[in-house]
Design a protein around this nucleic acid. Sequence first.
DNA 1: GAGTGGTCTAGACCACGAC
DNA 2: TCGTGGTCTAGACCACTCG
Lengths: 235, 235
Amino acid sequence: MTIASPNTWQGVQDEVLRRIRERVWKPGDLIPNEADLAAEFGCARATVNRALRELAEQGLVERRRKSGTRVALHPVGRAVIEIPVIRTEIEAAGQRYDYRLLLREVTPPPGRVTYTLGLPDATRVLHLLAVHLADGVPFVLEDRWINLAAVPQADEADFSVKSANEWLLETVPVVRGDLAISALPCPPDAARVLELTEGTPLLALDRSTWGPDAPITHVRLWHMPGHRLLTQIAG
Amino acid sequence: MTIASPNTWQGVQDEVLRRIRERVWKPGDLIPNEADLAAEFGCARATVNRALRELAEQGLVERRRKSGTRVALHPVGRAVIEIPVIRTEIEAAGQRYDYRLLLREVTPPPGRVTYTLGLPDATRVLHLLAVHLADGVPFVLEDRWINLAAVPQADEADFSVKSANEWLLETVPVVRGDLAISALPCPPDAARVLELTEGTPLLALDRSTWGPDAPITHVRLWHMPGHRLLTQIAG
DNA sequence: GAGTGGTCTAGACCACGAC
DNA sequence: TCGTGGTCTAGACCACTCG
C-alpha cells in the first residue's frame, strides 16, 4: 500500500481514513468543513469534495448541507456481488462450457413470478428450463420466464443454441433489476436433472429484470451443492 | 423518473445511457471523446468526465487513455448487498431486538476458520455462540471466532449484554473483509437452538475481517429458513 | 509523438436545511 | 438567514498508451 501525495484526492482520502481509523475523529464526530480541510491540505475544495464524496458513498461518513460531515456511527458494510454471464463465469474458471435446453413451453407462470414481476393475469409467458455445464458436469439449472408481451421476438428465437441469458442481453434494453438470494431444498424435477437427492440445500438466485416500460424476465438459478458466492466487503 | 437538465452531469449521463440502450452506440463501439461531448452538450469537460467515470465504475463503458471510451461488450451486473448490524436490521423492520449469548470458550478453531483467516496453529481464539431474536423469535444464529492475539481486550469483554458484532465495530479498526454466501444443511447444534429439523436448508453468511496488521474475526451467520437477501442490480 | 482520459485549480452560483 | 455541501466552468498539466 502506497500513500498518495497528500494534495491529490486519494491522498486526502487516505489521511481522512487514517484519522477515522485511529479515532482522531470518532464515530459521530463532526469533521471540519471542505474549505477548512482544503486549506489544511493545501489543495482546492473540489479535491476534498471528491475524497469525501467517495467516503460518503461507501457509508463511512454522512454528509448533510449546512450540518456538515460526520463520521458514521454504524457504518453499513457493503458487499458487491458481480453477476457475469454464466458462460463467461465458467470459461473464466478455465472450464469447458456446455448448455442444454430441457423444456420450452408457453404456460401460465406460478404466483411468485407474476407477483415479483407485477404481471397482469392474462399475460402470455414463455417458460424455459435449461442446464449449464462446466466440463460436462451440471453447474447451474436455469428456470426462466419471459414476458412475451414485452419481448414478442422471444417466441421465434432458438434457445437451444444460445442461452436466453445472452440472447436477452443482446436484444432487450434493461433498465433495472432485482436479485434475491435464498437457500432452498432441491425440488423433485431439479433433483432428476442435477442427479441429486430431493431436499438437498441449494443456493437459489432469483433475478427479475425490467425494460423501460414493462417487466422482461424472471429467472431462478439453482446452483449445485457447495456453491459459494464470494465477495469483498467495502467500508 | 425525471430527466435532469442536459448540461448537468446527470443529464449527460442520462443521455449517454439512452444512446447505449437504444443502440445508437452499440456494444463495442467507440464513443466521442470528452471534449467533443462537452461541446455537443454545451458543458465543461469535467462534467462529461464525471458522467462517464460513473458509467465506467458501473461497468457499462470501458475507458482507456489514448484509445477512448467504448460501450462494454458484456456488461457485468453488480448487486450491492448491504450488511447492517443485526440489531439495526431487526429494529428497522419494526421488531423488538433480543440477544442471548449461549457459549463462550477459548478453544482451537476448526480448519475453515484458521484457513480463511490465515491463522498460525498456536493462536488463542475466543469462540462465541449467540442467537439474535426478532420479537422473541430466533432470527439468526451467530457462530463467531475472535483472534485474541489481535484483540486481547476481547478476553475480558462482557458479550452477554452487547453483541460481539457491535463491540468489535466500536473497538477495532477494520481495514478489509470477505463475505461468502452459501446454502448449507442445518447442523445438529443449530437445530437444537433454532428448533428446526436437522438438515433444513439454511442461508449461511461467512464473514472474515482483517485489521491493519492481523486477522480479527470470522463469523458464520445461520439465517432462519426462508430468509432472503434482497438487492438491486446496477448496470 | 500525439491523442486520450485523469486530475487539480480558483472561482462561482445554487440548493438544502438548521436556526 | 446563512453556512454547508453539490455542482459547473475554463483552463491547465500530467500519465498513459497506441501507432
